[in-house]
């Protein structure tokens, strides 16, 4: 995508977003009390959010058991943090932080580097 295509992309996204926010003010005043509109408002969002979560998961790398395990643990931590504490920032930063640490520290060189001071301490004690 070139820079000018990116402009178009954001304008399209802006139009779609504005439409969702402006629709009730422009056209929905007569629809607001229809039962099916209420029903959609109540029951559709958790379905769509699950779809979007799956979409987000599919953008992550899945090249082995490690990837899948890291993703599953990070997702479980995010869900549990939010279920218990209900602080969006804590849940998002907690889950994402865990995933970032897991992704960046998984190469063995850096894990060995982390282990060196522990080895040194170990040798000094014994």
């Amino acid at each position: 995508m070139s820079s000018s295509e990116l402009w178009v992309f954001f304008v399209v996204m802006a139009a779609a977003t504005f439409l969702t926010r402006a629709l009730p003010f422009i056209a929905m005043q007569g629809l607001a009390d229809r039962p099916w509109v209420h029903y959609l408002g109540q029951h559709l969002p958790p379905l769509l959010m699950a779809v979007l979560m799956i979409y987000g998961l599919m953008t992550l790398p899945f090249e082995g058991v490690g990837d899948g395990l890291l993703t599953a643990i990070s997702l479980a931590v995010t869900l549990c943090l939010h279920w218990v504490w209900r602080q969006p920032l804590l849940s998002i930063l907690g889950g994402t932080g865990l995933y970032v640490v897991g992704t960046q520290w998984r190469d063995w060189d850096s894990i060995e580097r982390l282990l060196v001071p522990i080895q040194v301490m170990f040798l000094q004690v014994f």
Partner: peptide, 12 residues
Amino acid sequence: GFEFALVALFAV
């Protein structure tokens, strides 16, 4: 790894 923020946001 920052790309997980999208999943975390939707999960919340």
